[in-house]
Amino acid sequence: MSPILSVQDLQVTFDVRRPGSWPWTPPRKLHAVGSVSFDLAPGECLGVVGESGSGKSTLARAIVGTVPSSGGKILWEGQDLAAMDSTKRRTHRRDVQMIFQDPLAALNPRMPVGEIIAEPLITHEPNTPRAEVKKRVAALMERVGLLPNLINRYPHEFSGGQCQRIGIARALILKPKLVICDEPVSALDVSVQAQVVNLLMELQRDMGLSMIFIAHDLSVVKHISDKIVVMYLGRVMEQADARALTTVPEHPYTQALISSVPIPDPRREKARKRPVLEGELPSPLSPPSGCVFRTRCPKAQPSCAGDRPAMIDLGSGHRVACPYHEAQQVLAAAI
């Protein structure tokens, strides 16, 4: 099946000016995303994992088109996003919707939820009769588990989980093809997280959505994703099928991420030998030379400081950016 979305060697750089610097000093370049590639088939879910600051949101924004990419290509149904004219671009916008991390901040506090949910519909189908809009909003509210008679309430009258359901309803009203969820449950209570993830999984299945699911926590992503991309400091460390990545992780960073997930059984948790991540995330303005992970890598070699390690293809879509990779099956039981 041909991919609905194909990201090829995508780069996003921000110009950063130090406060108080002269207007004529050239800005510093912050490589928020450096050479990310993946394909997404219709109905498939791609997980993106990485610590905070690893460029996940920026990747999502580049795909949605709210930040410009500075290199590489984003192909939507085979067409380059950058080369699209404005009408095509508008249809792209209606096919790709986003769900945000902070559910309350993503909703305009001065708008009743009915208007918030209806906004994409009114934007792209302005001639829909009011009664029809209302009917669709009510039906969708019911579908995501909100009482439709709360249609005139304002966001601050809802809980975090309910706000996220409102955000989901807004993203789905146009029946998009791709939904990008940027850490949709990170800001929610643990008990509510499972409900929202289950709702998303169910909606994805019922509506045949493609999905990109971003999280900083591998255990959430593993549930919902078919494929997973692991990012660190804007670079892809490893990408593979969800099953392969979580059972036989090859990259030291993936292994560290997996081992940071606690095992529910306390006896096994205690007996476990875990390569814990030490140190801080380096500044993205001056990333380490060679492998960006080398300052925290338990297996780092002197040669790691040289060139950026190339992506090594292990077959069946498993790619890893470390020449010293080795599968670690021991950890497989961990999650």
Partner: peptide, 12 residues
């Protein structure tokens, strides 16, 4: 704020 980004992303 994110709600403005949401509107931009939708194409408002």
């Amino acid at each position: 704020k994110e709600f403005v980004e949401a509107a931009i992303a939708t194409g408002v």
